[in-house]
Design a protein around this nucleic acid. Structure first.
Length: 1035
RNA sequence: GCCCGAGUGGUGGAAUUGGUAGACACGAAGGACUUAAAAUCCUUUGGCCAUUGCGGUCGUGCCGGUUCGAGUCCGGCCUCGGGUACCA
């Protein structure tokens, strides 16, 4: 063994730990840099190779920045509250804290083995009371705040109370839930409870009745981003709609700032797009419709006020509050039935029936505010209560859903937008609605002839003038549901007095999670915390029994890292002023609509109240790609099918001189092979079936004067013998149809991937990737893998068994999970680090495949050998390096620096390989070349670099060194090999001085021998010369 | 349906601003060293034609365009991946 990575890596990991090499403190004398990874949820399965991909990339960057003189904050911790540990607790009774601690220990062990430069003194666990104290603290601040749209920031609830006392709700411009306006006198006459109820409409953390995503299987409510296609993201359980009282965060107050902030951060466009779509800003207007013969008004939101003249009916969501009030007696039964039906439909059913048109008529009519025309009011579930006002004006001519509805119920369709130059056709003849993104208004009273854009403006202006409408912006984003009916989460620091919630005073935080006798809801359906004994305040007020969701603890964790051990504050002012925000955040794009939105919101709020100093938490973000699994397959043979396949190979295409048919049918009978010419039936089956069938077959053949051959499957291991028998029959010989032999013990047979016909007689079965090396199966290990595989037979190709492969999700059941520990044991952490980077761009998703890791492993040993003699003795030359050697060194320094700066880690690894190959060729072992190389390699392969650095005679860790500057003097070339192309096709190369002028180059090329050959007497029209790049001759 | 992103050898990928397509690595084939294996080293390796050497020709999902020159830019299409979905 030339380089003992096992020993060396252990040695340095211990050194780093004992000497606290990666401990950082705020140091105003140095520029800061904050590199953060999305902290993991510690699952029972441990880390697989996909997790560290981002950690390795960020670790390399952090180490690089440190060598560049930055004070680098690079912490790690655990998102430790979560459903899996709680589900496990329900099943086994083990407290989630116990499971979580155990998992964290395992994670830590795995992380340590990879050699990360984390400052573990700053570790946080979201389930630790000293941490969640600040999650609770922030919640209380949210509860005690409202959003003032005039100042565009959150303010203490006190300022709102002052306003109420003086003006009531008048003159207020705030983010609030819908409610009746009131005067200062109203306010003063309210009792405590009513006032609290009123304040609840404004608080940034508020309690409200909401239609929620209820997941019965998990026994909890889920946020929108935790539900996908009507199923829970975790576990895939069905989700229902249910109305419940829950805590919500008024994130919608920040919708515009969340949107606007995206313009100032360095995230990928796709991620920004996802967030923009999720926020879903749409600009339009709200219009008020009178209900004919009543005092009720229906407000609608529309992005197309210009189509108001085409509104031929109106649709309300079935849950709309006015439905009951406006429904006529005659229609009551129908409406009730429809409302009942939609209410009791699961979310999945609703989504599955999207294409089906349904609805019911209320019997009421609304009046078009501009024309006064009576239009019928319907209800239908294609209108959602949660968006806009829960009511729409339907313009069937120009909206596909309204069109479908109108057609289904025979409602009027009226065209109001027309594209210039297009002929009018009657809407009755349309198959679909008419696209109205562009065009001019027709049939539209005072806006006739106006372009869409102008028409929208004109309608809004007119509506405002008449007091029947206003310009309005709407967001798709909903307030975030913050309650979970679960045990394993942060308790709310809230108690109830007279049914109204109040926040615990700060000195009573943290409110610790109580002990419970079981992790299940109570018999009355209350959350698990209701089981806790004495779950009330000192004064005896009951405490909230819901807990906070997963995203609570992960929203502000990056701030806590800045000052993780502070017992007095979330974090000190000094710390936040120094560390500011995250400069580089590495993590998965799957958090785009969850964590990454909530954290931005959380941070903006903390910014508003003067805690955070930057309004955006994560300046630059890189999404590491997902690592998919690469599964291997063996092909299990169906012996009968295989025998039939081989037989057919011998019989088909008149190979025997007579024509055979395969799968010949006679009534309900079927024969494998039949030849009308030779009057012969050949049947292949297992020995035992043949024994049973021999008589019926013989009878059948006798009746029809046919010859018969019954061939047991086992004979196929001797194809020659079978074909001899066939030939003898064809030659007219009388031979017995069936020869009884000893039955065969069936053993599983597996056929190699490229064996001819394999796909016809075998089926793929997942095989553990650890039994496969470069797609070649270790057949012995395979036989020992599972008991039923003992004694398996293999049909090989070129003496090997080649497996099939496919890219799939990494999962236990597919036997394709690769954990880093195994690889570290075999190749070492440095190889793993380099290989994960070498695989391709960090941002790209790719399958994990260990093919190729050997190459990186070889590089590590080659690099080691640059410093060692053939007998593995360390030794460097003190000679002055020559130009060539210096060029290799400085070229590499430059390339590595450029590559790290643009997060191109894979090409940097290549550059190290090229450099090593070149120095190897130059037989260079000079200290002046190799030492700087160690420093630039150290972010990638820290253990190897430390060991060699020490062998070089240095006392201080390589981590403490400075990144060398490339000396461009050595990079200057004095000649350049120009590719000469003709009409863009490269033909030959010409070596010319690098500083030659374009004119001289042109002349040199004209005179070149080869030029004449390729012009072949044709006239040169033009020569393009790009110095130091190319020459192109146009002929 | 709508909004993004990506398609390059047998494989992972490189080509940074429109300028030598396939760097680097794996795999494969052949060879050296070795009693043997491992390790190491050398040669070849996009397809087709030619092969004694020279070379020729096609080629970055498909079709077209801009340009002296296109993997890179533009238009249209196909396939795959991600997001989202009665959002008015």
């Amino acid at each position: 063994m030339d380089y003992n990575f096992t020993e060396v890596e252990k040695k340095w990991q211990q050194y780093w730990r004992e000497n606290q090499i990666y401990k950082v403190t705020a140091d105003p004398g140095k520029p800061k840099f904050y590199v953060l990874d999305m902290f993991p949820y510690p699952s029972g399965a441990g880390l697989h190779v996909g997790h560290p991909l981002g950690y390795i990339a960020s670790d390399i960057y952090a180490r690089y920045k440190r060598l560049k003189g930055f004070n680098v904050l690079h912490p790690m911790g655990y998102d430790a509250f979560g459903l899996p540990a709680e589900q496990y607790a329900i099943q086994t009774g083990t407290h989630p804290a116990v499971t979580t601690d155990k998992n964290i220990e395992r994670y830590r062990e795995q992380l340590d083995k990879i050699g990360f430069s984390f400052d573990w003194d700053r570790e946080v666990k979201t389930c630790d009371p000293s941490y969640y104290k600040w999650t609770q603290w922030t919640f209380v601040r949210l509860f005690e705040s409202w959003y003032n749209k005039k100042n565009n920031k959150a303010e203490p609830i006190q300022t709102l109370i002052h306003h109420f006392e003086s003006f009531g709700s008048n003159g207020l411009f705030a983010a609030a839930s819908a409610h009746e306006s009131f005067t200062a006198e109203n306010w003063r006459s309210m009792n405590e409870k009513s006032r609290q109820e009123m304040l609840m409409h404004y608080r940034l953390a508020y309690l409200a009745d909401t239609v929620v995503n209820w997941c019965p299987a998990l026994g909890t409510v889920l946020a929108n981003d935790e539900v996908s296609e009507g199923l829970s993201v975790r576990g895939g359980h069905p989700v229902e709609r249910k109305t419940m009282k829950n805590w919500l965060l008024r994130i919608t107050a920040y919708a515009d700032r969340l949107l606007e902030g995206l313009d100032h951060i360095d995230w990928s466009d796709s991620l920004k797009d996802i967030q923009r779509n999720w926020i879903g800003k749409s600009t339009g207007g709200s219009l008020l419709f009178e209900v004919d013969g009543s005092n009720h008004h229906i407000e609608v939101f529309t992005t197309r006020p210009d189509t108001i003249f085409g509104a031929t009916f109106m649709v309300l969501a079935p849950e709309h509050e006015l439905v009951n009030a406006i429904t006529t007696v005659g229609q009551q039964a129908e409406i009730d039935e429809y409302v009942h039906r939609t209410k009791n439909r699961s979310e999945r059913e609703r989504m599955a029936e999207v294409k089906k048109v349904s609805g019911a008529f209320t019997g009421a009519y609304a009046l078009n505010p501009f024309t006064g025309k009576k239009i019928p009011v319907w209800i239908a579930d294609y209108v959602l209560m949660g968006y806009g006002t829960g009511a729409i004006m339907a313009v069937p001519a120009h909206d596909s859903r309204d069109f479908a509805f109108a057609r289904h119920f025979g409602l009027e369709v009226l065209q109001v937008i027309q594209k210039p130059g297009e002929a009018l056709s009657h809407p009755d003849n349309w198959d679909e609605s008419y696209d109205s993104k562009e065009g001019v208004a027709i049939n539209s009273g005072f806006i006739n002839g106006l372009e869409v854009k102008q028409a929208i403006q004109a309608v809004v202006t007119e509506a405002e003038k008449r007091g029947i409408g206003t310009a309005r912006i709407n967001y798709r984003l909903r307030d975030a549901n913050f309650s979970r009916q679960r045990y394993w989460g942060e308790p709310f620091p809230i108690y109830y007095k007279d049914g109204m919630p109040y926040a615990l005073p700060e000195d009573q935080l943290p409110l610790e999670l109580p002990a419970v006798d079981a992790f299940l809801p109570t018999d009355t359906g209350e959350p698990p915390l209701a089981r806790a004994i004495n779950w009330k305040t000192k004064e005896g007020y009951p405490l909230e029994t819901n807990t906070m969701p997963g995203f609570a603890g992960s929203s502000g964790y990056y701030l806590r890292y800045m000052d993780a051990q502070n017992n007095e504050r979330y974090f000190s002012e000094e710390a936040v002023n120094y560390w500011q925000n995250v400069d580089l955040y590495m993590g998965g794009a799957e958090h785009a609509t969850g964590h990454l939105i909530y954290a931005r919101f959380w941070n903006m709020f903390l910014f508003d109240i003067g805690m955070a100093v930057k309004s955006e938490p994560f300046q630059k973000l890189i999404n590491q790609g997902m690592i998919q699994g690469r599964s291997n397959f063996v092909f299990r043979v169906n012996l009968e099918k295989m025998a039939e396949y081989f037989m057919w190979e011998q019989l088909k295409d008149r190979k025997t001189g007579v024509l055979f048919e395969k799968d010949y049918r006679d009534g309900s009978r079927r024969f494998d092979f039949y030849s009308a010419e030779a009057k012969l039936i050949i049947e292949i089956k297992g020995q035992k079936s043949l024994e049973k069938l021999v008589h019926p077959y013989e009878e059948y053949c006798k009746e029809r004067g046919l010859k018969l051959l019954l061939i047991p499957i086992r004979d196929f291991f001797n194809m020659n013998e079978i074909m001899q028998r066939v030939r003898r029959v064809l030659d007219g010989e009388e031979i017995p149809a069936f020869v009884e032999k000893e039955p065969m013990n069936p053993v599983p047979v597996y056929v190699s991937k490229n064996y001819p016909g394999r796909e016809f007689f075998s089926e793929p079965i997942h095989v553990d990737i650890n039994l496969v090396h470069n797609d070649v199966l270790d057949t012995e290990a395979f036989c020992n893998w599972q008991p039923h595989l003992a004694g398996s037979q293999f049909i090989l190709e070129d003496g090997k068994y080649i497996c099939g492969w496919e890219v799939e999700k990494m999962s236990k059941s597919k036997y394709n999970v690769q954990n880093p520990d195994d690889l570290i044991e075999r190749y070492g952490a440095d190889t793993l680090r380099l290989y994960e980077m070498f695989l391709g761009p960090v941002e790209q998703s790719k399958p994990w495949d260990t093919q190729g890791i050997e190459g990186v492993f070889r590089f590590i040993r080659k690099f080691w050998r640059l410093f060692h003699s053939e007998n593995n003795e360390f030794g460097l030359s003190e000679e002055t390096p020559n130009e060539k050697e210096l060029k290799v060194l400085h070229k590499t320094i430059k390339k590595i620096e450029e590559d790290i700066e643009r997060f191109s880690f894979n090409t940097a690894v290549s550059a190290f390989m090229i450099c090593t190959n070149e120095l190897n060729e130059l037989k260079c072992n000079k200290r002046k070349v190799l030492e700087p190389l160690l420093i630039i390699l150290s972010p990638y392969a820290p253990h190897l670099a430390e060991e060699l650095w020490q062998l070089c005679g240095h006392q201080q860790s390589v981590v403490m060194q400075q990144f060398p500057a490339p000396d461009t003097r050595y990079l200057v070339e004095n000649s350049f090999s120009y590719p000469v192309s003709f009409n863009g096709k490269t033909r030959f190369k010409i070596e010319l001085p690098a500083d030659m002028t374009a004119a001289d180059i042109e002349q040199a090329v004209r005179n070149a021998e080869e030029t004449k050959k390729y012009t072949e007497g044709k006239q040169i029209k033009k020569i393009i010369v790009v110095p130091q790049r190319i020459i192109n001759i146009v002929i």
